[in-house]
Design a protein around this nucleic acid. Structure first.
Length: 891
RNA sequence: GGGCGAUUAGCUCAGCUGGGAGAGCACAUGCCUUACAAGCAUGGGGUCACAAGUUCAAAUCUUGUAUCGCCCACCA
């Protein structure tokens, strides 16, 4: 068989992708029954291109899904995309702008048509990219948050909440993005510390002409001031109470109010009150019945209320106003001042707090049960610390502003009657007013927050509000894997929605992985230009390499630091797998051999050794996966495969394979096959493509092997089960001692600079007779590993001339030298070794002579120390003997 | 202002319920040994940020300090 020395992922990945797709291995049906295991994908935005965050997120999910599928669960991974209201509208508007057109040129209906067309043409390309990554979603079920079904769920939810009094319309201060021209929720406002200024401005007291100074960070809002506030305890308040204050420049008269909110120690202790542009001022306005003056347009320019500043941009106005105040002598001073400023999470424009009529969801009643299920451990967070973050947010939850002044999204199902002015709220478009029966209805112009559809994702994707068989079977889902960034946006809200509308939790485990950063620790983002494109990595290293590398460096919930060189881990590992398999294929191909599994009684100690370690590995990997310790699972298989199977077992197998004993050969082949087969299965969730390729190749060697015929794909082959009966620690320990002896011999060779090409004579003095007979039976092996022409094994061996030696657990190994021994060098070498051992021994002896250690430490710990003490002192003694002999040569 | 995370080898990081400091990369030396140079063998390298405490025993638990990073918060 002619197989290239290097694994090239490209064709392999394409081949199996279409194979899986054709055979629909990832399609789930509730009719197959069994125990369900379901994950709903965090739907990426339709506008998205695959980035490393997606790659990590979806690799984690695919590992879980593939693993559970192999374990025999009825497994479903529900895929789909999010319509991403503002983000998508922005993208399409930008595209229009390039053609010198705006959404207003098109008008609402045509614009929405245009977005749908855009989606068909360019949107959802991320789905194909996820396929390339190897994601085994049930692609037949792909959903979109604006699908007909999901849209119905959205309306249903709105109506239900409205009827329950949990959705209401009101005038409040909301976060307004002057660039997107829409309201945002509190979560959509990102607070960033900015170096701003605190402006001190003089206002005039009308009667007395006296000046009072207020401090503000946003002087332009002065134009909308309707009062000046002091703390009632402030003695200045008594003097000013009832007086009128004249606003500079605009010369409008406003009142003085007393309010506990005012902090006497901040600024001047006198606050300008702008109810239409500040949440605190708004509250004060309500308390004191103040008028609200909104001085801004929706695009952040000043309106007619701003007098001379009309049509000016808010920041231009600020500059001009400060200039004017300075000129007219009202500006006292400007202090540097750092403060948190809200930014639009979509376009990063500075948000304007603005009084506006919007729709809200009352959250407290929804939050209560969602707090309870977490406290009751019905939902667990991994890592656990996120539970606290979740509870903190939930307990201090504020109402959710859900209306958006954009066009792309779910239109609010509310109609206003033009006759009686009453509202009709309905799932199906009403033909007449619910109260006066007039047909003259106008639908609310706004659409809903994107998250108002995604919070229903775990059940809307199964057909809710219909109680479908899928919904009954797969809900609640099992695991949700996502990034902590959307804990509040999405995870928390899904829990609330699940409980409210399904009466049950949406998922049991929430696995929150870290954020992907570049190797300087900066979050990867397109705008910073520090991204690594996963598709480039797939192109260069392969999807398996990308997945394996990323997972093996991702500790549970810690952030991931990526640089291109990291992907070599996975690429090299894939290549190692490739070559080990190549070795098997080369040695299996020569004769058609029937597939007869090895018999336990025919196994050599090396066979038992590797099978023992295999079973330990299966146990370790399975446990690690159960605990969501993906990096550990990957590490365990990696280490087993590379350092035990390849470095040790394949090497011990070679003399057998190249020898004449047909039965031994067959047994060895079957063990080689079995162990690699099981390893490939364990690796499948991590490296789906190469594991499939090699599994298919290996199984195709044996015409009478049934696994390939039974399962057709490793994807649905059974997950390995560990068998304790296969783990014999005595044998594992003995074989380990053999390898330790080999290493000691190799070390001697290396320290004496003897090239591997020259064959040497070794003498092994085993510790016990039992080891002697074991080593004798392993003579061929030992000769191969040590590149020795002859090895003498004798418990009574005493060197007649000076020989370099090394002491290990199993005994002493001596190396013959062609020329005479440099006794001085050897004595130095031995002294060095002895020194190290003695230091270790001293530490242990000190411990053991400590009465409180012996009395207080558990018996097994003390016993272990005693064992170590015996072992080390014996080794020291032997080295001392050897050293004495060498020294005698020096005299 | 509150909360959280990180600090371990030159670099990137593991180290779960306290009991022998680990991996990968890099480095040094030697090897194209009939699976693999994307490899093999051998080796060097760490006051586990600092300080105090609990304990027979601390990288691991407690408290505090420092540095970096993140999240939340309506002091104008």
């Amino acid at each position: 068989m002619d197989i290239p020395k290097q694994y090239s992922p490209k064709e392999t990945e394409e081949k199996w992708l279409s194979f899986w797709n054709k055979n629909k291995f990832s399609h789930a049906s509730c009719q197959n029954g069994g125990e369900s295991y379901a994950i709903v994908i965090p739907p990426p935005n339709v506008t998205a291109a695959l980035h490393m965050g997606h790659a990590l997120n979806n690799t984690v999910q695919d590992i879980l899904i593939r693993w559970r599928r192999m374990q025999g669960y009825n497994t479903l991974w529900m895929p789909g995309t999010d319509h991403a209201g503002i983000a998508t509208q922005n993208v399409v508007e930008k595209q229009l702008a390039r053609e010198n057109r705006s959404r207003d040129d098109l008008g609402r209906e045509k614009f929405i048509d245009h977005v749908w067309k855009w989606r068909e043409e360019y949107g959802g390309k991320i789905i194909n990219q996820l396929k390339k990554l190897g994601c085994s979603c049930d692609w037949e079920r792909e959903r979109f948050t604006m699908d007909e079904g999901l849209s119905r769920a959205v309306k249903e939810v709105f109506v239900r909440l409205y009827n329950k009094g949990l959705v209401y319309q009101g005038d409040y201060i909301i976060n307004w993005c002057p660039r997107c021209h829409t309201a945002l929720s509190d979560e959509e406002a990102e607070h960033r510390d900015l170096d701003g200024a605190l402006y001190y401005i003089n206002y005039t007291v009308k009667d007395t002409g006296e000046k009072i100074t207020v401090a503000t960070t946003r002087p332009e809002t002065m134009l909308g001031d309707t009062a000046v506030a002091l703390n009632p305890k402030d003695e200045r308040y008594a003097k000013l109470k009832g007086k009128k204050i004249v606003l500079p420049i605009v010369n409008r008269e406003i009142d003085v109010i007393g309010d506990e909110f005012v902090d006497t120690s901040f600024g001047t202790g006198i606050v300008k009150v702008t109810p239409a542009h500040d949440p605190n001022d708004f509250e004060m306005g309500l308390r004191h019945n103040l008028p609200s003056i909104n001085v801004m347009n929706h695009d952040g320019t000043l309106n007619e209320k701003a007098g001379p500043y009309k049509d000016m941009d808010r920041f231009h106005c600020r500059k001009q106003l400060v200039e004017d105040l300075k000129e007219s002598g009202y500006l006292v001073k400007i202090d540097k001042h750092q403060h948190a400023v809200g930014h639009c999470y979509r376009c990063h424009t500075i948000i304007e707090p603005r009084l506006s009529r919007q729709w809200f969801v009352k959250m407290k009643p929804l939050a209560e049960p969602a707090i309870k299920v977490v406290l009751d451990k019905k939902i667990t967070f991994l890592p656990n610390r996120w539970e606290k973050v979740y509870l903190e947010w939930m307990t201090n939850i504020r109402d959710w502003c859900i209306s958006r002044q954009i066009w792309w999204g779910h239109r609010i199902p509310v109609w206003t009657c033009q006759e009686c002015g009453k509202l009709t709220v309905a799932v199906d478009d009403p033909t007449q007013c619910a109260s006066c029966k007039s047909k003259n209805l106008v639908q609310d112009n706004d659409v809903l927050d994107t998250w108002f559809s995604s919070w229903l994702w775990p059940f809307s994707t199964f057909g809710w509000p219909d109680v479908t068989p899928d919904l009954k079977f797969f809900y609640p889902t099992n695991t949700l894997a996502t990034a902590p960034e959307i804990l509040f946006f999405w995870v928390a809200r899904m829990i609330m929605a699940g409980l409210e509308f399904m009466g049950d939790i949406p998922f049991q485990d929430v696995y929150l992985h870290g954020t992907v950063r570049d190797d300087s620790g900066t979050k990867m983002s397109k705008s910073l230009g520090n991204t690594i494109d996963p598709l480039d990595v797939i192109e260069e290293f392969g999807a398996d390499a990308l997945r394996f590398s990323m997972i093996s460096i991702t500790a549970q919930g810690q952030d991931v630091y990526l640089s291109p060189s990291k992907f070599e881990i996975g690429r090299n590992f894939a290549n190692k797998l490739w070559n080990a398999s190549r070795f098997l294929l080369m040695n299996f191909g020569e004769e058609t051999e029937s597939f007869t599994p090895y018999k336990k009684e025919d196994l050599s100690s090396d066979d038992k050794y590797i099978l023992g370690l295999l079973n330990k590995t299966i146990k370790g990997v399975t446990e690690a996966l159960e605990q969501f310790r993906f990096n550990e699972a990957a590490q365990i298989v990696y280490d087993f495969f590379w350092h035990s199977y390849c470095d040790k077992y394949i090497e011990t197998a070679k003399p057998v394979l190249y020898g004449d004993d047909k039965d031994a050969k067959h047994t060895t082949r079957m063990v080689l096959f079995d162990v690699l087969n099981q390893t490939l299965k364990m690796l499948h969730p991590f490296m789906p493509f190469i594991s499939e390729e090699l599994w298919q190749l290996l199984h195709s060697i044996f015409p009478d092997d049934t696994e390939l015929a039974n399962y057709k794909s490793i994807m649905v082959a059974p997950w390995p089960k560990s068998d304790d009966a296969m783990i014999d620690d005595t044998i594992i320990n003995r074989v380990d001692q053999k390898f330790e002896m080999v290493s000691a011999g190799r070390n001697l060779r290396s320290e004496y600079d003897i090239p591997p090409s020259s064959e040497l004579t070794f003498f092994i003095k085993p510790e016990t007779g039992e080891l002697q007979s074991y080593f004798v039976s392993e003579l061929i092996m030992l000769k191969k590993f040590l590149r020795a022409s002859s090895i003498t094994i004798d418990t009574e061996f005493e060197p007649q001339s000076g020989l370099p030696s090394a002491v290990v657990k199993a005994g002493t190994i001596f190396m013959s030298l062609e020329g005479a021994l440099d006794a001085e060098k050897e004595s130095d070498r031995l002294e060095g070794k002895l020194d190290k051992l003695r230091k270790a021994l001293m530490g242990i002896r000190k411990k053991l002579s400590n009465q409180s250690f012996v009395n207080n430490a558990p018996a097994n710990v003390v016993e272990k120390e005693r064992g170590k003490e015996a072992e080390l002192s014996e080794q020291c003694e032997k080295i001392e003997q050897n050293l004495a002999f060498i020294r005698s040569l020096l005299k």
